[in-house]
Nucleic acid binder design. Structure first.
Lengths: 106, 106
DNA sequence: TATATTTGCAACCGATTAGTTTCTTAATTA
DNA sequence: TAATTAAGAAACTAATCGGTTGCAAATATA
């Protein structure tokens, strides 16, 4: 089974779960109330998110609180970095063109 | 068929294609040479990437040059923004704790 | 004009996915 | 202690995915 962060965020329900538990830790039941699926389906998503370290569990009696492992999200940011460099350099090129045009006007 | 940018970057081959054509426009044949799959499989990936506007085509005779639509990559960056806020605020909180400790030492 | 090259599309195949229902385990509460 | 509640695991299903082979269309070249 492929189990990386890019696979994890590919599913819209999982992205919604991530957004929910980013705000505060939640139990599977509480999370499932926000979706039109069964608790078991949410549980499977949580399992996958846990397996790729995007989410951590905290046991409290028979309840389990899930919360976002924000550090893991940085991996996406790091991957994006190579492309950020590209769009920033393009922006700078545009900036140069604009300032050259400005100088010519003067 | 689901066809959004998060689905598009979920596959490792597609991420590799994106990285390749970010550097310079390439034809499907040239791209396929870099992978252990058929040209047709690459073609299917390119079709999907094109359908969600991550890639643009430029026709040149019977050849088609594919290149990255860097603007589209910003969408991931924008989605990440909500989480970037979280990890930056946590960092600031840590920063505050550290500076408080420093003051107490003095 | 005949042949070769570049490409996309359709049909098919096995594996994976996202969901369901059913069941078990463990903790709480009446 | 018995009933209830929270959660995960297993088995199943329909749909999708990533890949293949075979084909057709369009362009380039001999």
């Amino acid at each position: 089974m492929r189990r990386d962060i890019f696979q994890a965020i590919a599913d819209p329900t999982r992205r919604a779960i991530i957004a929910l538990i980013a705000l505060q830790p939640m139990t599977p039941n509480a999370i499932a109330e926000n979706f039109h699926t069964t608790r078991q389906a949410v549980s499977k998503h949580l399992r996958m998110l846990t397996e790729c370290d995007l989410v951590k569990q905290e046991y409290q009696g028979r309840e389990i609180y899930y919360s976002l492992e924000i550090e893991k999200m940085k991996e996406i940011d790091q991957w994006l970095d190579q492309y950020r460099k590209i769009w920033e350099s393009r922006f700078n090129q545009l900036d140069q063109v604009l300032s050259t045009l400005k100088k010519q006007k003067k």
